Amino acid sequence: MTAAINWLDLDGVVNMRDLGGLPTTDGTTIREGRLLRSDNLQDLSPSAVQHLVEELVLTDVVDLRSHHEVESEGPGPLHAWSRVAHHHLTLLPDMDASSGPVDALLVKRDRARRDDDHWASHYLGYLEHRPESVLAALRVITQASGATVVHCAAGKDRTGTVVGMALAVAGVTESAIVADYAASAQRIDQILARLAPRPTYAGVLKGDPSRQRPKAESMARFFRALHAKYDGPEGWLASHGWSDADRQELRAALRD
Rank of each mutant, 00 (worst) to 15 (best):
R198M: 08
A253D: 11
A245I: 14
T29F: 01
I30A: 02
L106G: 00
I30C: 00
G125N: 06
T159R: 12
L89T: 00
L127R: 10
P199N: 13
G164V: 08
D60M: 12
R83V: 09
W119P: 00
G232H: 03
L52A: 03
R31M: 01
A176N: 09
E249H: 13
A154V: 05
L10W: 10
D115F: 04
G241Q: 08
T159H: 13
G207F: 14
P199R: 13
L64A: 04
A228H: 14
W236E: 00
P23S: 09
N15F: 05
R65V: 00
L237P: 06
R139A: 14
D94P: 08
I30P: 01
T173A: 10
V62S: 02
L167I: 05
L127I: 04
R221C: 04
S175M: 12
N15C: 03
G27Q: 04
V13I: 14
S184K: 05
S121D: 15
Q212C: 10
S210M: 13
D63H: 08
R34W: 01
D180W: 08
D103C: 03
K156T: 04
A137K: 00
A136T: 12
R37A: 02
V62Y: 02
D9M: 04
E128Y: 11
A252D: 11
V107D: 12
A97Y: 05
V61T: 07
N40G: 02
R17W: 06
S66F: 02
Y181T: 06
I5D: 14
D110A: 11
D9Y: 07
A144V: 03
W236A: 01
S184N: 09
P93H: 14
K108E: 15
K215W: 01
T161F: 01
A120E: 04
T28L: 11
N40A: 12
S38V: 09
V14D: 08
L52Y: 02
L19N: 15
Q42D: 11
Y126W: 10
W242A: 03
S47W: 01
G171K: 09
V14L: 03
D189W: 02
G27W: 08
S175W: 07
T59N: 08
R194I: 00
Q143M: 07
V61R: 01
G232N: 06
S121M: 01
H151V: 04
D189I: 01
G76Q: 11
H122K: 13
L19Q: 12
A4E: 14
A136Q: 14
S72L: 08
E71L: 09
R17I: 10
W119S: 06
I188P: 06
A228L: 13
W81S: 11
L41E: 07
P77N: 09
G125C: 02
V172P: 14
E71P: 00
E73D: 14
E73A: 13
A245H: 15
R221M: 09
D180N: 15
P214N: 08
T2R: 13
L254S: 05
L58P: 07
T142A: 14
D94M: 05
L192G: 06
L237T: 11
